Amino acid sequence: MKVLVADDDPGSLMVARAAVERSGHDCLAAADGDQAWALYLEHQPDVVVTDRVMPGMDGLALCRAIREREEDLYTYVVLLTSQGSREDILAGLKAGADDYVTKPLDPFVLQARLLVALRVTTLHADLAHYRRVLARQARTDPLTGLHNRLKLSEDLEQLHQWSVRYGERYSLAMCDVDNFKTYNDLYGHPAGDQALRAVAEALLGSVRKSDGVYRFGGEEFLLVLPKQSVSGAKTLMERALDAVRNLAIEHAGDPSGQLRLSAGISAFTAEHRVDAVTLLGEADAALYAAKARGRNRVELARQSG
């Protein structure tokens, strides 16, 4: 572990540092609260052992600052207090300390506290890891590996707010696999799943790194294209449709004899400053227009053309 020790008493600081290093941990030392806070921000230690009374930021203020800043990982805080100071102990725990050690400092006691701290910080690190994994799973389509509707709503809201604030444009492209129900009827759902994964890969290979590709539902996909003009979005989508054609997936239920894709595009521009929900509706309407005009094509929303 990385342990930060803060104490304005040189003797106590030396004893604490020796106990930390004897336990096999890396030690950072601070002679006052302000220095401790600066070291905390720079190094993000796993454990902080801090005196209650110090020049500058005292131990209670340091505890509060640590708790207010924490996001994912947890810092275990041990408060050093005067012998028998119950008020200091309660105040420290209320401020966010996890444990306390009375002074004069006993190295054995501190080493024992560090063993507890190791268990607790390891547990918190494991929990943080599992939270991240679950968060990714909740925002990922299990079939294609693309982002799902939840992630789309988060990303699109953020992009829209940013575009409104800075006057940037962006485009949306709603895509749909042509005659997909017929494909499933002819070849079976496992083949349909495989086809959707192939289409997802083709779409990912057609966009820029800054673009987002989402499974919108069923055989529908949505592409979010930051800072992309309507003409640029149309060129990109025509390239994406070519990529799907190049997959050469047989589809006896399509007039072309192969799996094809249709797409509709809408855009947020200086002349068309509507909300994201409206843009989604416009892209969807453009997709339906592409279907009505023979499929296997890209159409622009009337408001974006």
Rank of each mutant, 00 (worst) to 15 (best):
R64K: 09
H124W: 02
G264I: 10
L203T: 12
S82I: 08
P55V: 01
F268H: 10
G305S: 13
R149G: 03
G188R: 12
L172I: 07
L93T: 10
A292W: 07
L247D: 11
R22C: 05
A112F: 07
Y166W: 12
S256K: 11
L287F: 05
R197T: 14
R293S: 09
Y170G: 00
L186D: 12
V164I: 11
V207Y: 09
R293A: 15
G281A: 11
K209P: 07
M14V: 05
D284T: 04
G294H: 13
K103Y: 03
A195F: 12
R165H: 09
G205P: 01
L287W: 09
W162K: 08
D155H: 13
T81E: 06
S12N: 14
R52M: 14
G232C: 04
L172G: 02
Y74F: 15
G281F: 06
G281Q: 12
Y170Q: 01
D155S: 11
V177M: 01
P10S: 01
H25F: 13
D88F: 05
E282Y: 09
Y76W: 08
Q258L: 10
H43N: 15
D106V: 13
V133L: 11
S23D: 14
E299F: 07
R169G: 07
L79H: 08
S85C: 08
W162S: 12
T269L: 10
P226L: 01
A173C: 09
A240W: 06
L287V: 07
E168R: 15
D26T: 13
R297N: 07
T122D: 10
N296Q: 12
D155F: 10
L115K: 13
T81A: 06
H147Y: 05
A283F: 04
D7T: 05
I249K: 01
G56R: 11
V101R: 03
A117Y: 03
K291T: 03
